[in-house]
């Protein structure tokens, strides 16, 4: 680990800004309810090492170690254990909670992110294995003013009901369009086969992605 980078930032953005979000409220409520700390970071007792070699050598069990992850074009520092998944590092460490944790076994696709452009189950990837890779989450798709065309198409086609699978579906769709441009219906189904929607909105999802593929610039 390099020590000359920006100081580690382990404070969720919602708290730094002094703002009040649904998430910070829920977190506070759960702490109050169980009377103890929440979050994966609280499971490790040792000090955080910042001078550890990056991605080489042996990393002891149970030790929090700071790694640098390049997420949505920005290098972020996050303290993780060897067993911390990329999913948990994103959600609990970096407060990027758009990526959803559902099955945690690679069976549902809700945790899909892009790693070097490839769709990936972030629940089946160790955070340590993501060092040096380019990670894109649902938060990284929209520009300042505009949604990503796939996001916009989901809105216009009303391609969701409860919405919990939506970030994963959008990421798989972005990867599919990046690879195939204008996929055939069969190709689209093949490329979205790793995502499950329990509300059953598949028809609208396929229509939205086909629509996004057809728009200029995609």
């Amino acid at each position: 680990m390099q020590t000359d980078g920006p100081a580690p930032d382990r404070t969720p953005a919602s708290r730094r800004s002094g703002g009040f979000s649904r998430r910070s409220f829920l977190k506070g409520a759960s702490i109050a309810a169980v009377g103890g700390p929440a979050g994966a970071a609280a499971t490790a007792g040792g000090a955080i090492l910042t001078d550890a070699p990056r991605d080489t050598g042996t990393i002891p069990a149970g030790q929090l170690r700071e790694i640098a992850l390049r997420v949505n074009g920005v290098e972020r520092r996050v303290a993780v254990e060897t067993r911390t998944t990329l999913l948990d590092a994103l959600r609990d460490g970096l407060d990027l909670t758009g990526t959803k944790k559902v099955c945690d076994r690679g069976a549902c696709g809700a945790c899909t992110v892009l790693v070097d452009g490839q769709p990936t189950n972030s629940c089946l990837m160790l955070a340590h294995d993501a060092v040096g890779r380019e990670i894109t989450t649902i938060e990284g798709l929209a520009s300042d003013a505009a949604l990503h065309p796939v996001q916009q198409a989901f809105v216009e086609h009303d391609a969701l009901q409860c919405g919990f699978c939506t970030p994963g579906f959008v990421m798989s769709a972005v990867a599919c369009l990046g690879k195939h441009g204008k996929p055939s219906p069969a190709t689209l189904r093949h490329e979205l086969a790793g995502n499950i929607c329990r509300c059953g909105t598949y028809g609208r999802i396929f229509a939205a992605v086909q629509d996004a593929a057809g728009r200029a610039g995609r």
């Binding site: 042996t58 067993r83 690679g106 089946l124 340590h128």
Partner: peptide
């Protein structure tokens, strides 16, 4: 997952040498 040590060898020979009881090789880890 229970805690585990993560060894990152710098060669195949080193990986082979790092094998032992209660240690397993990991590729992607799927």
């Amino acid at each position: 997952m229970n805690p585990f040590e993560l060894r990152n060898p710098d060669s195949v020979a080193a990986a082979s040498g790092a094998a032992g009881p209660a240690r397993v090789f990991k590729a992607a880890g799927i």
